[in-house]
């Protein structure tokens, strides 16, 4: 009994914090906007009983989802978000892997300190850290002042308000999520495996590709998902660092919700975003599952 109760806790948690909110959003996505409180119709009236419920159901339709297919804005925004998230993930991997590798190779007494340094930025508000990038990247910012100062450039670079700044912001913000799982995988790596690979004819580089990379695969995959998933729906970073041409679904969703006050369409956008995210999440779960089985 106690055991069953224990298992029920995470399921209740999922039910309360994921499934029920999702059903509410799904329900709104099937409704129509209306100038009222709340700004959509129909709303469920329990006093009407069963008839009221069927009446309520009959008023729901997929009109908003059809609408999403009619305007190229939406699929372009999804595509652009996917592209930005994918490229950011790749960049985070390229930056994060060497850091994780260096950490795992560092002397054991240094590792806790290095780990601390990776986690340390989380102690400061995310917003403040993104804001500080405005100060670094703006035309009058530290980066341009530095580059002008050492004479690398003669005209300030326009980085802020471009996609480049968005990539920098996303990579910076989510880098620890990339580093930590890769570090965890690399730290477990037995040095004698690399020696064995060299002994069997690998150069240092091929030993890295044939042994280190495959053995840190689980960490790489986990890191990529942990960066990709939040980056896909990212709103704050593109709106602070990005330019007006930075098209991301998070921004489109914000505009549907706040500017157009069209909660049903905003909900439909969110439902589709969730469906897009579910694919990688399911893949991620299966990878984890396989990993656990492999480790037996």
């Amino acid at each position: 009994m106690g055991r069953r109760l224990l298992i029920a806790v995470p399921y209740l948690w999922l039910l309360a914090l994921f499934l029920i909110p999702f059903l509410i959003v799904l329900k709104i996505s099937l409704s129509d906007p209306e100038l009222a409180i709340p700004p959509y119709t129909p709303t469920l009236d329990w006093r009407e009983g069963w008839a009221g419920f069927t009446e309520f159901l009959s008023q729901l339709d997929f009109e908003n989802f059809v609408f999403l297919t009619e305007d190229d804005l939406y699929w372009k925004a999804y595509l652009s978000s996917l592209q930005i998230a994918a490229l950011s993930t790749l960049l985070a991997l390229l930056v994060g892997y060497p850091i994780a590798y260096a950490m795992a190779r560092a002397a054991p007494e240094w590792r806790p300190t290095l780990l601390m340094l990776v986690i340390l930025p989380f102690w400061t508000s995310f917003l403040i850290r993104v804001y500080s990038w405005i100060g670094i990247l703006s035309t009058e910012g530290y980066l341009n002042q530095f580059l002008l100062g050492i004479g690398v450039i003669s005209e300030p670079l326009t980085i802020l308000n471009t996609n480049v700044a968005v990539y920098i912001g996303i990579v910076y913000t989510y880098l620890p999520f990339m580093i930590l799982p890769i570090y965890a995988a690399l730290e477990k790596l037995d040095d004698s495996l690399l020696e064995a690979a060299e002994d069997l004819g690998c150069s240092r580089l091929s030993a890295f590709w044939l042994v280190t990379v495959p053995l840190s695969k689980a960490g790489i995959i986990a890191g990529c998902f942990l960066v990709f998933i939040p980056a896909l729906g990212e709103f704050v970073i593109p709106s602070l660092l990005g330019g007006s041409e930075t098209l991301m679904i998070g921004k489109v969703l914000w505009e549907e919700f706040f500017s157009n006050r069209d909660w049903p369409v905003a909900s439909a956008v969110a439902v589709v975003l969730l469906l897009i995210l579910i694919v990688p999440i399911v893949l991620f779960q299966r990878n984890e599952q396989r990993q656990r089985e492999a480790e037996g």
Binding site: L35, L73, K76, A77, S244, E245, L247, E255, N260, R261
Partner: peptide
């Protein structure tokens, strides 16, 4: 009105982002 509001928001997005 809400219909115009949607058109205005959409036009504004198009002007800003080219999409």
């Amino acid at each position: 009105p809400s219909r115009t509001q949607r058109a205005v928001t959409r036009l504004w997005t198009k002007i800003k982002s080219g999409t």
